[in-house]
Design a protein around this nucleic acid. Sequence first.
DNA 1: AAATAAATTGCAACCGATTGTGTAAAGAAA
DNA 2: TTTCTTTACACAATCGGTTGCAATTTATTT
Lengths: 343, 343
Amino acid sequence: MEEHRHVTIYDIAKRLNLATSTISRALKDHHTISDKTIKKVKKTAEEMGFVPNTLAAGLRGNKSKTIGVLIPTITQPFLSSLISGIEITARKSGYSVIIMQSHDSYEEEVNMTKSLYSSRVSGVVCSLAMETKDTSHFQQFSNNNIPLVFVDRVPKDFNTFRVVIDNYTAGYKATKHLIDQGCKRIAHMTAGAEFGNLYNERKRGYIDALTDHGLPLKDELIINLKAMTYDAGVKACNKLFGLKTLPDGLFAPGDILAVSAVQTAKKKGIRVPQDFAVIGFNNDPISEIIEPNITTITHPAEKMGKAAANIVIDTIESHKEEEAKEITFLNTEVLIRESSKKI
Amino acid sequence: MEEHRHVTIYDIAKRLNLATSTISRALKDHHTISDKTIKKVKKTAEEMGFVPNTLAAGLRGNKSKTIGVLIPTITQPFLSSLISGIEITARKSGYSVIIMQSHDSYEEEVNMTKSLYSSRVSGVVCSLAMETKDTSHFQQFSNNNIPLVFVDRVPKDFNTFRVVIDNYTAGYKATKHLIDQGCKRIAHMTAGAEFGNLYNERKRGYIDALTDHGLPLKDELIINLKAMTYDAGVKACNKLFGLKTLPDGLFAPGDILAVSAVQTAKKKGIRVPQDFAVIGFNNDPISEIIEPNITTITHPAEKMGKAAANIVIDTIESHKEEEAKEITFLNTEVLIRESSKKI
DNA sequence: AAATAAATTGCAACCGATTGTGTAAAGAAA
DNA sequence: TTTCTTTACACAATCGGTTGCAATTTATTT
């Protein structure tokens, strides 16, 4: 195999008897270069098969036209859609996307922030690992003017951009929907106190909705899960279905949990939605395939990705030093399907 | 906000009164540097908050410790698992992963290969876009000694590494399984002639299995789909269920199609598996959640990703010029669940 | 103690694009 | 024709690690 050497602007310069600076400028339509030269340079570059070396450009400018994405895992519908949104938006503006999975480990997350910084990413989009309770490892980005956007699972005490849904309101709406359907004993699953306070917020919404509508809050109906998995959901349901008085509704803060509930109920002969109305969260693909279809709260994953990427890019390209680090709230909706339709 | 300046090896060198070359070598435990110096340098680097600039290193060495991943889309269980495998393996060896989605567009794919080349990725893992019929845009990698591995949807006439499953055998096994269950009229869905000959292979397996077991091959039982979507599956099933003699089995080359078949059958009052046995492909999460559970062919996505990444990394680090570009076959299995159990 | 070998560290070019500043050429105004 | 502008391009430093080779110091041998 012949060792082709990469074609550089030096090669073009030599061929055309021009300076490399002229080549560089001509290739990006700099106004100080004549049209004639620009045309000539571009043509020659094309002919010679020139492909710019972004490493060199990045080194010089100390930025790489790259967005780092740091998330717990990509094999999860919500997160892969999120990434998809980021990638599509980034690409439109000529940015590449580097992906790293923390697998919900704090230690990995810390290492990965170092890697990303080391790669001189132009910006970072992150959804925090479950384990993370301290975000000082993100300080290096803020300190060096690298835009940082947290998505979905965000820290509460860190001054950066955030793209989220209003989990409190979503939780409230979900619960209210069940109440509207006539449910009186609505169960809820949640995750233990966590740093990114997403499940706590949903739970707050649940509690307030109950209270506002004169329903009692029963501890036995709130199940704390360690993991948001199918099996954990089944276990929780078995506990619920073991109560003296059964619940007549469930607000599950994740579709996979809702699915496990629907199926566990079926097995016990509990009819969904007649005896037991279920609402999930996320609008995962499975929620509209399972039978009965699951009523859920939409979670605009791809939109959130696009929004996050746009914030990163805008911040980079606006060159503003001190920026207002706003929180972007995206809208969620109750997507009514069969699993909750009592009326 | 104060503009922190990145700490460089020059800063460390100045502080310790050493040459930058010494710093550089000390940081990577070069044998010509004394232990004392190494320790001193590392300690100072740590104190000063030094983070190596991989762009600079990459520029010098003309490689970026980055693996480019070019796939149709990441929001698909098989592909996101594939990426996950790549990312995990890459990371272990200190490589980053850049993701790009072609969205099955040939034009996008071409542009993305340019981007990847421009970023001087150390290697590339790719699953071809549906539209792609010509792979000359990948030549730039081969020409420049950048390892290229195709996964799953691979070209047949391009001399590179490939990581695949044996689709023919898988198709054969799937069909054989239905035959073993007593099916006599087995339907099949497939995709029109495509470049990455994956569905054709599965179909070949289907045909040979029928033939080998003395079953007639009926054109009416083979449905050609344009897209492998739920809706396309429903439509195809309606066609099947409109035949004078109904099929008693279906080999769907994707779980989503199998799901659509199971549900369509249910609606028509056709019992699965008693009247109609179904086997899918991929072992997508949904296949074990839907009721009845779907018998499927395992498709080791994460393993394939790991294998592909390992090939890339091994090739880079072995520095071999002329390498045998083998095809790696990963194993698939029939995962028997309820949707096919007639006996 | 002299000489040779071995262990350390320094020097400087290099990767390739970018960009501030300087200069020559061409055109306009005086 | 001379001077002042523009216009078009060249020079050279720069980004920050890496690495071949030279130089210096230290250790070992005779």
